[in-house]
Every structure is written in structure tokens, then in C-alpha cells.
Design a protein around this nucleic acid. Structure first.
Length: 111
DNA sequence: TTTCTCACA
DNA sequence: TGTGAGCA
């Protein structure tokens, strides 16, 4: 933990470094990942990758979501259906939560 | 001009 | 899943 753009309290050093703050338009993401805008909208409809909305109701994707989109694209290319992708992402979050819990338990009861 | 939603094949 | 209409 040293070269990250974060302060000691875990806050991003600046909004520009916040993986959650930078927003891309659907057009940017679409050409960036080479995937149709319609596909992006369907992923949003099915709650697989749901970006924030601007005042005008337009989708704004964060870097995190662009990364997630990359993973989703890989899975679908491998033949995983959207409900399947949804399952994978849910299990992924579950694993992360459990890993955090394990780390926490280890800290409380060291060997 | 770009994005939005909705609808059709 | 891709395309097009009609709107803001």
C-alpha cells in the first residue's frame, strides 16, 4: 500500500482518482469496449451493470463499471447467458465479503 | 448531436 | 440482439 492515490484514511486524494467518480457517457463506453449501446442499456435494465444517472437522466459510467463491463463482455463471449453473468457477479461479491470476514477473524484471533 | 425509451423482428 | 422511430 504505497503508490495508490489515497490518503491514510482511505479517501481518494482527489475526485480525479476516485474510481467511482469519473463518468463516461454511454457513447464513450460503447466505443471504448466496442460494444453496442443497446447492449449496455440491456445490462442496465437487467441490473448487471447499473450506472448513475445525470440530471437529464443520462447514464454516467464510472471506471469501476467500465471494468465490470469488461468482465461481463468476456463472460458473454464465452457463452455465459446474462442471468448466468448476474449469478457470477453475485457470487463474486459474496466471495469478497467472506474474504473480508476471514481477514477480520484472523485479526481478532491470531494464531 | 447525443442520449433516452419503447417496440419490432 | 440489433435497429429504428420519436423525443428532450
Amino acid at each position: 500500500m504505497s503508490d495508490d492515490a489515497e490518503t491514510s484514511d482511505g479517501e481518494p486524494a482527489s475526485p480525479l482518482d476516485d474510481q467511482t467518480a469519473p463518468f463516461y457517457t454511454i457513447g464513450q463506453v460503447s466505443s471504448l469496449l466496442g460494444m453496442p449501446q443497446a447492449a449496455l442499456r440491456r445490462l442496465d435494465d437487467q441490473d448487471i451493470v447499473s450506472p448513475e444517472r445525470s440530471e437529464g437522466g443520462q447514464r454516467r459510467y464510472s471506471r469501476n463499471e467500465v471494468d465490470r463491463l469488461r468482465e461481463v463482455a468476456t463472460l458473454t463471449e464465452e457463452g455465459v447467458t446474462l442471468p448466468g453473468v448476474r449469478k457470477v457477479l453475485a457470487l463474486r461479491r459474496r466471495v469478497e465479503a467472506l474474504e473480508e470476514e476471514i481477514a477480520d477473524l484472523r485479526a481478532r484471533r491470531p494464531e
